[in-house]
Design a protein around this nucleic acid. Structure first.
Lengths: 105, 105
DNA sequence: TTCATATGTGAATTTACTTTCACATAAGTT
DNA sequence: AACTTATGTGAAAGTAAATTCACATATGAA
């Protein structure tokens, strides 16, 4: 088992904003502006976040006129749709374990 | 969907050392000293890492004489054993997506 | 081509995390 | 009790990541 890839991927998922972006894009592909407005976050912040998500293959983008539309890649899109996906696993863990510890939240 | 729990859990998993510890404890429950020696990492570093893993419910500890033996909790232990677990999902993602991006590794 | 809109990006700043170190505690041994 | 071993812990120092901001680029409209 190589460790670096795991920690790197988890690190990209370790930001609240980036998780929000994944959740948003799951409902609907969006431009930076749309994401930025719907999340109430500064545009450049969203842009930097998207870059990190893109670098690790969680999202991709396509030009549409003046906008760049961001889309979840199949990989993570499938995860979110499938039963027993990445988020289910974490959610279950959180439900069972994390609320008991003081510091986790 | 609450976002904080996700990002917090992912953050705890975003350290190479902490992933190594999880992998080690998967083979065998160990004391801080044993972990520290087998990983070649400074004792206090391992102790701090274990605290974070414990805070988020990934490991628990039990006294055994002078030692504290660290054990993976059922939650994550099951994950590592089950097909389609957390690590499989990330591994598959890495294999498919991350090696294409420059920055991910 | 000039202007407005949407976005990307680098760098400085700020914030968060990790590592190290000295010391405290706890249990077993002599 | 005094000593040794194993560990926990707080705080300083070091390192990395997030945020902000000014500017660059790219596309469509007038």
């Amino acid at each position: 088992m190589k460790h670096k890839p795991y920690s790197k991927c988890f690190r990209v998922l370790s930001s609240d904003l980036r998780i929000k972006i994944i959740a948003s894009l799951h409902s609907k592909s969006m431009s930076v502006k749309e994401l930025s407005e719907s999340l109430g976050e500064e545009r450049s912040k969203v842009s930097h976040a998207l870059r990190r998500l893109k670098e690790c293959g969680f999202v991709k983008s396509k030009r549409d006129g003046k906008s760049n539309i961001y889309v979840l890649t199949k990989s993570i899109l499938n995860d979110v749709k499938k039963e027993g996906n990445l988020f289910d696993i974490i959610e279950e863990h959180v439900r069972k374990k994390c609320n008991k510890g003081r510091r986790c939240f």
